[in-house]
């Protein structure tokens, strides 16, 4: 059965002046639907580069990346943007909320970009998602009025609101204290278990790795386990 994410012989080179630096060497990863996958490794090992490939924010130098059956290598910016909007949710290490929008508006933003739902449907979807991450009381607050953990919950709600096929989280606990970090991982884990959402997250925190149902270890741009 084909995976929802398939990286086949992926190589990624970045130019560095007149030289070229190889960030990924012949990566082969297949992730099935509903998995809770951690991509683990030290800093500079290539975790984020792999997530960028899966997240359609970058394309490989060699090899193929297939997301939900779509090979992304030859897609233009517009098609990649549409793929991100409709099939992928993002959770960032530094939360990356839009500071001038409140919790409701931040979560609603991807739905507005999609333009598929009516106002009433959007409202119901956003309220349900905000409730799911436990921020109903903070729904009218702006990011600078929230704690780090609350901000990451908003980011999770924003990532999930479009019902994406995959949610990517780049070191989602790195900027949180360990207790809050675990709470965030527990929330993601619950959503994975209950709603069968595919999560792929990068981490170098061993405690976080323990929560994953599947672990992909990366070192020096290579999958090592």
């Amino acid at each position: 059965m084909p995976g929802i994410v398939e990286l086949t012989n992926v190589v990624k080179d970045y130019p560095l002046g007149k030289l070229s630096v190889r960030a990924l060497h012949d990566i082969n990863i297949t992730i099935g639907e509903g998995e809770f996958t951690a991509i683990a490794g030290p800093s500079g090992s290539g975790k984020t580069t792999i997530l960028n490939m899966i997240g359609c924010m970058d394309v490989p130098t060699q090899g193929t990346v297939s997301i939900a059956g779509t090979i992304t290598n030859n897609l233009g910016d517009r098609a990649l943007t549409d793929l991100r909007l409709n099939r992928i949710g993002f959770i960032f290490q530094t939360f990356n909320l839009i500071n001038v929008l409140d919790v409701y508006q931040n979560v609603e933003f991807p739905l507005l970009l999609q333009g598929k739902l009516s106002g009433a449907e959007r409202k119901a979807r956003v309220n349900a998602m905000v409730e799911k991450v436990g921020l109903t009381k903070q729904i009218g607050q702006r990011p600078n009025e929230l704690s780090g953990g609350q901000r990451q919950r908003v980011a999770i709600a924003r990532a999930l609101v479009t019902n994406p096929a995959i949610v990517l989280a780049d070191e989602p606990t790195a900027n949180l204290d360990s207790k809050t970090g675990h709470a965030i991982i527990d929330l993601m884990s619950d959503l994975n278990r209950n709603d069968k959402i595919t999560f792929i997250f990068s981490t170098h925190d061993p405690k976080v790795m323990e929560c994953a149902t599947r672990l992909v270890k990366v070192e020096d741009g290579r999958v090592v386990g």
Binding site: T81, L85, P110
Partner: peptide, 16 residues
Amino acid sequence: TREIGTMRAIGIHRSR
């Protein structure tokens, strides 16, 4: 720039 990056990652088109 970071806000632009976030919005582009979420799925906003260049024209917007």
